[in-house]
């Protein structure tokens, strides 16, 4: 039985086994390969998407549990989110594999997160390249930009 969910604002009918991982639905059924798989165990956060506005690991979400929800992926930001520009300008992305998940988790932090909110809110996203501080600088800078 098809499952309907809204992906990046578009209502989408998916015909797949209800236990299929949301990650696989996005990558394989929808061709949205911006969402990455780093571990398959909910540790690295590379597969982070927003489900009804909150960050989840899409490798741990069965399609059945996404029925009727709104899913936002990196593609849904359409390159226009201030965080995206800021990650380029401030070194928040190096190899880039954690970046889509990291940005989605950062989106969920809201407009102007405190240092503490960033460190706690991104503790579920592993980055092996940056040591994280360039990511905080990127988010800080985007917060400044969005205020203007």
């Amino acid at each position: 039985m098809p499952i309907t969910l809204t992906i990046n604002g578009t209502r989408t009918r998916i015909t797949a086994h209800p236990m299929t991982r949301l990650l696989d639905v996005l990558r394989e059924d929808c061709g949205l390969t911006g969402t990455k798989e780093g571990c398959g165990e909910g540790e690295c956060g590379a597969c982070t998407v927003l489900l009804d506005g909150v960050p989840v690991n899409s490798c741990l979400v069965p399609l059945a549990q996404a029925d009727g929800t709104h899913v936002a992926t990196i593609e849904g930001l359409r390159g226009r989110h201030p965080l995206q520009r800021a990650f380029v300008e401030h070194g928040g992305a190096q190899c880039g594999i954690c970046t889509p998940g990291m940005i989605m988790a950062a989106v969920a932090l809201g407009r102007k997160p405190s240092m503490d909110a960033m460190r706690v809110g991104l503790a579920g996203n592993l980055c092996r390249c940056t040591g994280y501080w360039a990511i905080y600088r990127s988010i800080r800078s985007a917060a400044g930009a969005s205020k203007r």
Binding site: P55, A123, G124
Partner: peptide, 9 residues
Amino acid sequence: IGGVQIQNR
């Protein structure tokens, strides 16, 4: 427990 992603689910 976990990161926010895990706490949310």
